[in-house]
Design a protein around this nucleic acid. Sequence first.
DNA 1: CGACTTATTCCAGGCCTTAAAGTAGGGGGG
DNA 2: CCCCCCTACTTTAAGGCCTGGAATAAGTCG
Lengths: 418, 418
Amino acid sequence: MPRPRTTTVRDLRKSNRSRALWQVFLNGPLTRQEVGTLVGLSPATVSNLVVALEAEGVVVEVGLEDSNGGRPRGLLQVNPRYGYVIGVDVGETAFLVELFDFGLHMCARHTSVTDMTVLDPEDAVSHIVEGIESVIAGSGVDARAILGVGVAVPGLVEHREDAVVHGQSVGWHAVPLEAMLRRRIDLPILVDNGAKTLGQAEKWFGAARGTDNAVIVLLGIGAGTCIISNGEVYRGATSSAGEWGHTTVVVGGRTCRCGAEGCLEAYVGAGAIAARYQQLKHRHVAISPGELERRIAAIIDARDGDRAAAQVLDETVTYLGAGIADLVNLFNPERVVVGGWLGQALSDELLPRICEAAGRHALHLPFSRVQIVKADLGKDAVALGGATLPIARLVTAGAMAPEQVGARRRGQSVTSPG
Amino acid sequence: MPRPRTTTVRDLRKSNRSRALWQVFLNGPLTRQEVGTLVGLSPATVSNLVVALEAEGVVVEVGLEDSNGGRPRGLLQVNPRYGYVIGVDVGETAFLVELFDFGLHMCARHTSVTDMTVLDPEDAVSHIVEGIESVIAGSGVDARAILGVGVAVPGLVEHREDAVVHGQSVGWHAVPLEAMLRRRIDLPILVDNGAKTLGQAEKWFGAARGTDNAVIVLLGIGAGTCIISNGEVYRGATSSAGEWGHTTVVVGGRTCRCGAEGCLEAYVGAGAIAARYQQLKHRHVAISPGELERRIAAIIDARDGDRAAAQVLDETVTYLGAGIADLVNLFNPERVVVGGWLGQALSDELLPRICEAAGRHALHLPFSRVQIVKADLGKDAVALGGATLPIARLVTAGAMAPEQVGARRRGQSVTSPG
DNA sequence: CGACTTATTCCAGGCCTTAAAGTAGGGGGG
DNA sequence: CCCCCCTACTTTAAGGCCTGGAATAAGTCG
């Protein structure tokens, strides 16, 4: 994943170390030989690097491969107890905070529901801080062993000095979330858009694994995407690439909550689907964001007997197909992953029809090369993705030990299942 | 531009050499110090690399910077006589073949018009070969000094073993153009989509210069784009990324020549504009592709007095704005460059209105960060872009001399304007 | 012409990866 | 139970690369 800026011979080592660590991290127990093949290094160098990584407690040898006559190969894995990370999902209806070990197994979680229409940034910060303190306490992890916090938010995130959030749907305008959190938490903080963290989670552990060019769609109240290009999350100039929900699918069409006309979100967002259903039923009851999930499920369930439900879903499938086709034409991905609670609910029942609709709108060649699949990871994927942020930074840096940090980790024993 | 796969200490040198050469190539005369700063190398190393590059005739010192007391800095430039490249533009109405020196100054050109609706691949190959032979003869360049040929085609290009072209608009299905050309020409051949070559030309020398994230739009009979992401052309999984023309802007809208409904091309392509104008005028005369340019120019000229012309252009502006807004939302570029003969003609007169329409459809934040500008380079940009293909390959490889090649170039003298 | 200033080159030093040679750690046969 | 075989891992010597500082080159200015 890194883009090495190697100029000196020491950067070379850093780069090789980082690449080796990426392989071990992402591709699970691996022999030294496999690492060598994957990274393009001689056995001697791999050995050399591994010695250092083991000494620092970043990597551990877990068991041996079966041998057929010779010395068995040792299996290397990331040391789950090297440190811990926290992932935060600031959703439109709830806060989810989870604590993971370095192998990204969850150790503790904390949820707080806020069926919000507009949320005060200070309140949000309090929720987050409370959640973080709760998971640290709940897991019993030494706070000094926490490597960082990754916060996923709905809305655009600009990465300048500190991350600034523009979250139209929650009424945030240029909220300096990172700075606000930094004032209250003494941990490295990283903030990113929720679709991007979801995408990174699906890329590392889910349905987008192994692809170098993928688009992960996050469909819920809004519609965002994470574009994986050449194996990395594509951000664009100011980190707001992938704003699919406000792509125009009908020039002069329905007015979207963003103010523009004909946005995809105004046709396939959860609010739009529910509203359209009510319209067909001539009903007009206010629906809070928290209720939407149940309502949509009811519509999907009712589709065989309820003409309005069937029609709404037909329309949804068509617009969603067109939207996905646009992604296929523009990005030419190997795979499109449909995620988010709405995305997963729709694909459970309607994926073949969505694919067909996409095929009607996409060019034959790129469409013939793409797989459209449902997301693998569940609802927690956004928080898991948040947790990947500090990890990605660390692994890219090769988990270099800044002495004093190394000291605190040395000597931690590790159970080896072999 | 390269993505270094450095593992050994020799790869390091290759990588540094390539990066230094890229800087000298793209950023014109540069002092050794500037190269050092740009690439992140010490003066000693730059000097060392430059000695090698000069000895091989890749780089030359052209003049000195003014000094104010000390030894003047030498100015380094790529040696234009290091070799020559040929760019071919297979357009929908003509073939254009141009020969350039290593500094990409044009030395000779050859045009052949073919107002084609469907073109036989073998005929196309003959046109190309004829053009290549003509420019070589016309320029008097030794054929052995030609480094390669880059061919730009309308349509999707898959890069497998050899490039295969899927050019719907010219009736090509999986035409193995690269292999066909290789059989008749003994030169390195590279084939790519015309929008991508145009984009690379604009990125190197035109309106997209200096940006790391840009979208270059090629608007003519069809509508393609070149997406520059992190400074490089983005290709996607099978190299067909950027197919903007068949993005859906009106679900259930006009039928496009690709068979789908509501494609952008069916609203803003030259054929669509002309047809719509005729429809408003209740005229129905067949228009050949070659006539389109004149017709469109007439419509643009007539817009003040002719209500139908005004209406057609209004519609075009709106749809084009929506299409550009989609690009802005999805790619978050620093700059959108509008090129192609139609794109340039429209932006000459209507760019402010196009921007405004894009602003109505795009999200505020990414729109506030983007510049929408007209292309800088003229009609030959596609062929120029073709010529950049072999150069890009060479420069990325650091122009390493495979002995026998080096031998033939050594000793060529070079005029130094200093 | 000489002093001064700044660019470029030379050189010793410190790292890095590799190939080759040695060492470690199991299996299997007598 | 010991010894040989096989394969994985480590050690070591060699060859390369970049850097900082010293030395040299090439102008300007008085």
